[in-house]
Design a protein around this nucleic acid. Structure first.
Length: 496
RNA sequence: GGGCCGUUAGCUCAACAGGUAGAGCAACUGACUCUUAAUCAGUAGGUUGAAGGUUCGAGUCCUUCACGGCUCACCA
């Protein structure tokens, strides 16, 4: 049926309810219990006992199914994700309430007062005494059996996805629990949660293209942050020795199953510790989060069972290329050799690519997908790590790790560079890269260097991509499955 | 940005080789006082994503565009 006809039919019913004197959008309804509680408390009681106790309830929810049988009807109502059957009999309700029932559509909200009983087939059900109309749905819900599968509609009208698909609901409940578990863990460790600017005059803390905006009153360009890192370290300079922030980052880059322009990042910094301490902390934290949010220490991802019990494997970037990339130490020292390999894999790399960037590229190609079990990859080239501290024994390498689980990059951490002179040098080098055309090279941030000049203690810092972690914990293949409203190209009109 | 695939009723999907666009659910009318994907009888519902083209004839073939998915490239 044409959509406007469906809506008009429902509007007509709405008017009929009004003409009966029914308040069609009332303010509130006093429920005696959420449906879930009723089920928890009474679903085990035998029918005879239910009848003897004659338990009175006032429940409400959205009507999701109706089965009329002449002068009686069964319906299911849903609230809080739980479903309960209600039973309306013409001889048990007032004529007015019965008329209200006849005007109900799937999707409407109702409240019922009645008595619990068990049907012949054993289902816990409310025998309705009074029926209250709570809100009208003018548009139909997705089909009851197949639900809503059109991916575009699921993302554009997430409310329908949430109504029709229990898995979607589950993912976002779990996402909430995961974030809460991170907070609880860090709070217990003595970390302070802070909020730092989303709008920054100089976008820093990562190598990525920013979104740009303009502040009228100040008449300046501002950038949506690509990372909170430099602000969090300013706080450590200020004596907030353990800080964390869970918030949005924005990167003006491509959209894919692994990338959304805005995404959620946990970053945390701890004074007097280094990247080794961060690895220990990460192991404890991920296990704690899994146990709290999932109730177990193992996850399933892409058909693989993965244990999050420490210790996690630790291997240097270089050794990982030897182990999984089957490269020799000699090859790893030669850009020409690596270029040959890259070309052999038909990777598109520019001939003037630097050795460290080439290594990283080969890592992504050859190694990353093998890192199913939690694995810390350590010791990155300095060139791609402008904010990390060098290793004492090899100044070309920094004290940094990335954590991979299920082949996904989950965390990135390092011993923070706290030498202001060296930091300035690194920024200057980045400026040269930028001048050479690297749009993602880091900006010079004099104010940040100035902060370092006041003294940053030895500090370990880490960022964890919350969306990817939620993907991992919910076995989701696309980041859009774990972001309620992922970025899509806008489309005219509602509903499509 | 490139490649591949998709877009048909409110939802989920059909439609041979180019020959009158169909089903289930939802909706509407009627029957039915323990159903649960209720059942039964009937009714209505379509600019086949958009615009062009080929053809006697296009959901189907061609071109362009829009939106989406996957993938490659780019990118932490």
């Amino acid at each position: 049926m044409e959509r406007s006809t469906l809506i008009n039919q429902r509007k007509a019913k709405l008017e009929k309810l009004r003409s009966l004197g029914v308040e069609v959008y009332p303010r509130r309804f006093a429920q005696s219990h959420p449906i879930e509680e009723v089920i928890d408390r009474y679903s085990q009681l035998p029918a005879e006992e239910l009848e003897k106790k004659a338990i009175k309830v006032q429940l409400c929810g959205r009507v999701v199914s109706m089965r009329g049988h002449g002068k009686v009807a069964f319906a299911h109502i849903v609230n809080g994700g739980s479903k309960l059957q209600v039973y309306i009999r013409q001889d048990k309700v007032s004529p007015r309430d019965y008329e209200i029932y006849t005007l109900l559509d799937l999707g409407d909200f109702i409240g019922v007062e009645g008595t619990l009983f068990r049907t012949r087939t054993g289902e816990l059900t409310v025998l309705v005494g009074n029926l209250h109309f709570l809100a009208k749905a003018l548009r139909p819900l997705p089909e009851k059996w197949h639900g809503l599968t059109d991916v575009e509609l699921r993302y554009r009208q997430r409310y329908l996805d949430l109504l029709a698909n229990p898995r979607t609901r589950h993912i976002f409940y779990l996402r909430s629990r995961i974030i809460k578990a991170f907070r609880e863990f860090l709070d217990e460790e003595g970390y302070l949660e802070v909020e730092t600017p989303m709008m920054q005059p100089i976008p820093g803390g990562a190598t990525a293209r920013p979104f740009k905006t303009f502040h009228n009153a100040l008449s300046i360009d501002l950038y949506l942050r690509i990372a909170p890192e430099l602000y969090l370290k300013r706080l450590v300079v200020g004596g907030l020795e353990k800080v964390y922030e869970i918030n949005r980052n924005f990167r003006n880059e491509g959209i894919s199953t692994m990338h959304n322009p805005e995404f959620t990042m946990l970053e945390f910094y701890e004074s007097y510790s280094d990247y080794n301490d961060m690895m220990d902390l990460t192991e404890r934290m991920l296990l704690a989060v899994a146990e709290k949010a999932l109730g177990e220490s193992r996850i399933s991802y892409n058909g693989r069972r993965i244990s999050l019990s420490p210790p996690f494997r630790r291997i240097t970037l270089r050794d990982s290329l030897i182990k999984w990339g089957e490269l020799s130490p000699e090859q790893l020292n030669s850009k020409e050799e690596l270029l040959k390999i890259a070309h052999g894999l038909s990777l598109q790399v520019e001939d003037n690519i630097s050795l460290p960037k080439l290594m990283n590229r080969l890592f992504e190609e050859l190694v990353q997908s093998n890192l199913i079990e939690p694995t810390f990859i350590t010791d990155y080239p300095i060139e791609i790590s402008p904010l990390a501290k060098q290793k004492r024994e090899d100044p070309a390498i920094v004290e940094r790790f990335e954590l991979f689980i299920g082949g996904l990059e989950i965390a990135n951490a390092f011993s923070e560079l706290n030498d202001p002179v060296e930091q300035r040098r690194r920024f200057e080098h980045q400026l040269e890269e930028r001048a050479k055309g690297d749009a993602e090279a880091h900006w010079m941030d004099e104010d940040y260097v100035n902060a370092l000049e006041h003294g940053l203690p030895p500090t370990g810092g880490e960022g964890i991509g919350i969306d990817r972690l939620v993907m991992l914990f919910t076995d989701s293949k696309s980041i859009r499955e774990v972001i309620l409203f992922p970025q899509l190209r806008p489309r005219g009109g509602a509903g499509a």
